[in-house]
Simulated scan of single mutants.
Amino acid sequence: MLNKGKVLAEGFAVTAQDHHSFLPIVYKAFPAPSKLSGIIFDDRVDDRLSDAKVCIESGQCVTTHMDGEYSFENIVSGEYQVTVTKMDYISKTKTIVLPSGANIRQDFRLLPELSDGQIRITVTWNDVKKWPPSNIDNDLDIHLWTPFSESSGYYHISVDNVGNCQNFENESYPCLEVDASQGSGPEVVALYPVVDPVVGDFAFGVLNYYDGYQGVPSITDLDVKVVVERYEGSTETFYVPQTGTGDFWYVFNIEDGVILTEDLNCITWAGNPLVDPPVCPTP
């Protein structure tokens, strides 16, 4: 029969038939709880979004109030899929790693769903191919020219003139929804027509903003991709040509809602293609 001895710092001392034994106490360390919080924004205008639902894959969900903020307390550390949904917006999911005892801030930026007649153009690129010697991110910029107007000429949407994503002044009003100057984008421009289909002639291209600086990769080396989404769900994808000289990828024209690429989709130099159309080489 074992007789309990005194409690030691490291365990229990016991005796059995004059033989001493030692039973260690095992202390199990429980991970400290973590916290996840952030703000949900409208990606076009930086407004905070209320009534957005934020859920983690464990089944916990919270809803944002007027300040757009959300918070999860006392979460077990680990990797989680976090999904944000809101009526009339495109949902977004991110993978987030929560270390033990961490307080992680993760904001989300949502774009609205497209409605009748609307077109959204998104540009992404390779964020690995940075340029030396400072390992700086590349910066690609969207450029969209609108149909000619007797009162204002050609309207040019770019980082210097983003348009207004809320107040539409004519039949096919474009705006730069998202401008990105680091990483892999995305940059996003949208056409918000009052009538369907989009009316008039547009020209669209992508500028390699830092082209000409020492060490900057050519736009042909940056794996640039353009995706065109329409309100009815169709998409078209375009990839940057692998050859050509210039700082500008002239991607396509849009004529009364129809995307035209014949004799286009080439590398050239920046300028208004509607005024001075470049001569693209025949594939």
Rank of each mutant, 00 (worst) to 15 (best):
M1C: 06
L2K: 03
N3S: 04
K4S: 10
K4Y: 11
K6I: 06
F12I: 09
D18A: 08
D18W: 11
H19E: 15
H19K: 15
H20R: 06
H20P: 05
I25P: 04
Y27C: 09
A29C: 12
A29H: 07
F30E: 09
I40L: 03
F41N: 04
D47G: 03
D47R: 07
L49S: 00
I56W: 04
E57Q: 12
G59I: 01
Q60A: 14
C61Y: 00
V62M: 04
T63M: 13
H65F: 10
M66A: 15
S71K: 07
S71I: 13
F72L: 06
S77C: 05
K86T: 02
D88L: 15
S91A: 11
V97Y: 08
P99K: 01
P99Y: 05
G101C: 00
G101L: 05
G101D: 08
N103D: 15
F108V: 03
R109I: 01
E113V: 15
L114S: 11
D116I: 12
Q118P: 00
T124H: 06
W125K: 00
W125S: 01
N126W: 02
K129Q: 12
K130N: 10
P133W: 05
I136L: 10
N138H: 05
D139S: 10
L140P: 06
I142C: 13
H143C: 09
H143Q: 14
L144Q: 03
W145H: 04
W145Y: 15
T146K: 12
G153A: 09
Y155C: 07
H156M: 11
V159R: 02
V162T: 13
V162I: 13
V162E: 14
N164E: 10
C165M: 03
Q166L: 10
Q166W: 11
N167M: 09
F168Y: 05
E177M: 02
E177P: 06
A180D: 02
Q182C: 05
P186G: 13
V189F: 04
A190R: 13
L191E: 06
V199D: 08
N208D: 14
N208I: 00
Y213T: 10
Q214G: 09
D223C: 07
V224C: 05
V227Q: 14
E229P: 06
E229V: 07
E229I: 10
Y231T: 00
Y231S: 06
G233Q: 02
T237Q: 07
F238I: 02
G244V: 00
G246A: 12
D247W: 05
F248W: 11
F248S: 08
W249S: 00
V251P: 02
F252G: 01
G257K: 03
G257C: 07
V258F: 05
D263S: 13
I267N: 01
T268N: 03
A270C: 02
A270T: 14
L274A: 02
D276P: 07
P277G: 08
P278E: 01
P278T: 03
C280T: 01
P281L: 04
P283Q: 09
P283A: 08
